[in-house]
Amino acid sequence: MRNRPGDLAFHAINSTLLLLLTLACIYPVLYVLYASVSDPLRLMAFKGVLLSPLGFTLDGYGLVFREPGILRGFTNSLFYVTAATVTNMVFTILGAYVLSRKNLLFRKAITLMILFTMFFGGGLIPFFLLVKDLGMIDRWTSLVFPFAINTWNLIIMRTGFQAVPDAMEESANLDGANDLVILTRIIVPMTKATLAVILLYYAVGNWNSWFPAMVFLRDRDKYPIQLILREILISNDTRSMVSAMGSDLNVTNAYRELVKYCTIVIATLPIMLVYPFIQRHFVKGVFVGSLKG
């Protein structure tokens, strides 16, 4: 049954299509990687589909690392991501614990109040004005507290907490354990996998976030890496990095392109390095979330 010729043909076509699709997904990434180590002048003149680096040079990376803005953006981002992710986790764990209590009189009311915000909000401007009125403009707090909880993540974590067997909590209850003890000694250790997934969701989201920083931060010295990237990649501002290249316009332009590719690689590297290790956990998170709306 398995080996009918039609079957074979089907699998051959299916696998080929999947391979092509995968290539299409990953080629842009490879292209950027190859371009970032290519000889900039050859790259500039090349008019085709890049299948390997053209020559080899790390000049671009040297230029990027000599640009203080990139390094500062990087350290700023590290700080923001740490502060925001810790806050996210504390708030989300507390919220998920509250929502997972079965015999709480106001649980329904709190749940409804939270879910409603997924479908209706006051909008961008009132949110901006609020953060401004709270005196958070140009401060790191503006990137942390207004985004303390992502409701989707809260729901996923609540579902994870609900899966902890009641018997475990009841026996702890009989031993006189209070809620804080139950949360930290029973629930958290038993849902480590879910917590890890949510932690990673938050961390990646915080690392990639750029819009709040663009709106709330004024001082360029406080910019996270994504905003620096925006200047380089979107607004095409690479002057400071290639200013040392002399007056040959052709050479300068070639290096301008090169540093863009190098910046992309450097900014994406942290996620790409941990990606193979966390990928399976991410997937698990989606599975947990999809089990129960």
Binding site: F91, L94, G95, Y97, V98, R101, L104, F106, I110, M113, I114, T117, F120, G121, G122, G123, I125, P126, F127, L129, L130, F145, P146, A148, I149, N178, D179, L180, L183
Partner: peptide
């Protein structure tokens, strides 16, 4: 204790989700 734990969470939603609705 559970309500105490709920406090920061409810405060977050009131301040950053419901106040902007008023602000609208």
């Amino acid at each position: 204790l559970v309500y105490l734990m709920a406090l920061p969470v409810v405060a977050f939603y009131l301040i950053f989700c419901y106040l902007p609705m008023w602000g609208a």
